[in-house]
Design a binder for these strands. Structure first.
Lengths: 190, 190
DNA sequence: GTCTATACGGTGATAGAC
DNA sequence: GTCTATCACCGTATAGAC
């Protein structure tokens, strides 16, 4: 509950989102967070992995809540997903393509090299997936179809973020928004 | 054209695909490649960035060719894309989730922090995109629609690779294969 | 709890012999 | 072309004072 610990986690989230895990140094976290320098290993005795794990958990649940909240703003699931992805496009652009997909880089870096962080990322993505799934179920999709579509939606969004960040343009994400909207519109008319 | 230089590039591709850019050390590249140690800065005077740039270019054109070749095996674009993505799923699983999406990690790591590598990744992704685009055009899609769909297809695949690698399961990619197949099937019936 | 100082390893990069 | 030796630096992690 201490503010210093929380500051460390928060800035670790931001730095790892834009740079990845390996490029983010502990010194950088301490400096940028303004947290007391000597307290890093007091709050996180297990070092960098423990900090990253906390950052992943934090970014994961925060993002999951944001997905749920955004999807709740529109009844129509097609329009809700499309609007959500459009908002991401804007966010990625506004950040100078430094932000968006808070866990993607860490997830890729650690998928096969760090089981602890891999499991943390996995848990977070499952939360994202569940958020889409529940929206679809609430919109009348069968549980089975909702689960399948949630995976596909999440895939398209994550991939769109990659392309938008490397192209330095929100267009790929806007394309994903349009296609997912059309797909869900057609699927819900059955 | 020398074999040593080529070996360095090739193993740099593999290591950066599974670990990312920052986690891959030059010593590791030299050791794993078996290339003569002292020749690293002889072939790549500009150091790590130059090696990574060459690795990205190599992986990029190799992958683009593989996409084109795979899509050419089936006439029906829906089935061709679906089969291609299914093959990726198998490849990701067979590699122990260390491989797949050769440029994704580097692309995310460097999108906003290293313009040189960012541009290299961008060029590579545009090749991938063009490969899908041309298949769709050859299948009767309008140029406009083909370009839009290519971005979406590439996004879904890249995102599916992320999920499959972090979940340690080929299922997300197989889901992407099925949904893209259905989408393209419906789109081509217009 | 927080500080400063430091140990220790690995990194990218360079120099100079052969 | 390739080798070995070495540089300066930065990374994580630790020790011990306050």
């Amino acid at each position: 509950m201490t503010a210093a610990r929380d500051q460390i986690i928060e800035t670790a989230c931001g730095l790892m989102e834009s740079q990845g895990f390996h490029a983010t140094g502990l010194n950088q976290i301490v400096k940028e967070s303004g947290a007391p320098k000597g307290s890093l290993y007091y709050y996180f005795p297990q070092g960098k992995d423990e900090i990253a794990e906390a950052a992943i958990a934090r970014a994961g649940s925060a993002t999951a809540q944001r997905i749920t909240a955004s999807l709740a703003e529109l009844d129509d699931p097609a329009k809700a997903v499309s609007a959500f992805v459009g908002a991401i496009a804007h966010h990625v652009e506004a950040s100078g393509f430094r932000s968006g997909g808070p866990l993607m880089t860490i997830a890729m870096e650690t998928a096969a090299t760090n089981t602890r962080l891999n499991l943390a990322c996995r848990a977070a993505y499952q939360q994202f997936q569940a958020a889409f799934e529940q929206k679809l179920i609430a919109s009348g999709f069968s549980a089975e179809r909702a689960a399948a579509l949630a995976v596909f939606i999440l895939s398209a969004i994550e991939g769109g973020i990659i392309l938008s960040r490397t192209y330095h343009s929100g267009d790929p994400l806007r394309r994903v928004a349009a296609e997912l909207g059309a797909l869900l519109h057609a699927a819900s008319r059955r």
